[in-house]
Measured scan of single mutants.
Amino acid sequence: THFTSQQLQELEATFQRNHYPDMSTREEIAVWTNLTEARVRVWFKNRRAKWR
Rank of each mutant, 00 (worst) to 15 (best):
I29P: 00
L11F: 02
I29E: 01
N18T: 08
R41P: 00
Y20S: 04
N34Y: 05
V40T: 01
T33L: 15
F3V: 06
R52Q: 14
A49G: 06
E37D: 03
F3D: 02
W32A: 15
T36L: 04
S5D: 12
Q7P: 01
F44K: 00
R26W: 05
T4L: 05
T36Q: 04
E12H: 03
V42N: 12
E28M: 13
E27R: 13
E37R: 02
N46P: 00
Y20M: 05
A38V: 10
T25K: 08
V31H: 13
N46I: 12
S5M: 13
F15L: 01
V42M: 13
R52A: 11
K45M: 10
F44S: 00
R26I: 13
F3E: 03
E37S: 04
H2D: 11
F15V: 01
H2I: 10
A30Y: 03
A30E: 03
A49N: 08
S5W: 14
V31C: 13
H19K: 14
N34S: 10
S5R: 14
W51G: 06
A13D: 09
Q7W: 05
L11D: 02
H19C: 08
R47K: 05
Q16R: 10
N46F: 11
N46E: 13
L35E: 03
L11I: 02
S5H: 12
Q7G: 02
E27A: 14
F3A: 02
R39V: 14
W32P: 01
W51E: 12
T25G: 06
Q16H: 12
S5V: 14
L35S: 13
N34C: 07
K45P: 00
E12N: 06
R48G: 02
D22G: 06
E37I: 05
R47H: 02
P21K: 01
E27D: 06
A30H: 02
K45S: 08
S24I: 11
Q9K: 13
F15S: 01
T14Q: 15
P21T: 02
T1R: 11
T1A: 12
R17Q: 11
P21G: 02
F15D: 00
F44A: 00
W51H: 12
Q16C: 10
A13F: 10
F44V: 00
E28T: 11
S24H: 13
T1H: 12
I29W: 02
T14K: 08
R26D: 02
I29T: 02
N46K: 14
Q16M: 09
N34M: 08
E37V: 06
R17W: 12
N18W: 07
R47W: 06
V31P: 00
N34I: 05
H19G: 03
R48E: 03
T4C: 05
M23I: 10
D22I: 05
E10W: 15
P21R: 01
T1W: 13
T4E: 04
Q6F: 14
E10S: 13
F3W: 07
M23A: 09
R26V: 09
V42S: 13
T14D: 04
S5N: 10
R47L: 05
A13L: 09
R52K: 13
R41M: 05
R17V: 11
H2F: 12
R17E: 07
V40F: 01
A13W: 11
L11Q: 00
L11P: 01
R39F: 10
E27V: 13
Y20E: 03
T33P: 01
T25L: 11
T1E: 12
R48P: 01
V40N: 01
N46Y: 14
A30W: 04
N34G: 15
H19R: 11
T14Y: 15
V42H: 13
W32H: 14
T36F: 03
V42Y: 10
W51M: 08
L35N: 05
W43M: 00
M23D: 05
T4H: 04
F3P: 05
F15K: 01
I29Q: 01
A30I: 02
F15E: 01
W51P: 05
P21E: 02
I29M: 03
E28R: 13
M23G: 06
R41H: 08
S5G: 08
F15A: 03
L35K: 05
T4F: 04
T36N: 05
D22T: 12
A13P: 01
M23Q: 12
Q16W: 11
L35W: 06
V31W: 08
M23Y: 13
V40H: 00
F3N: 03
R39C: 09
H2G: 13
E10C: 13
A38K: 13
F44H: 00
